[in-house]
Amino acid sequence: MEISKRCVGCGQCAAFCPKEAIIVKGIAFITADCIQCRICMAYCPMKAIEESV
């Protein structure tokens, strides 16, 4: 998963990640614990989470 520049750092994604794989400080950062389940994508109000290609 990739975080785009649109991220404002609201932390909403972190609350819905089942793996606690998102750290937020001004911008979100996805850790190695991510299992690519894509749940966070739907909850981002800024559409800032994209699938890595």
Binding site: V8, G9, C10, G11, A14, A15, V24, G26, P45
Partner: peptide, 10 residues
Amino acid sequence: LLIQSYSGEW
């Protein structure tokens, strides 16, 4: 617990 920031469109 959590640091949440808001600007621009949110």
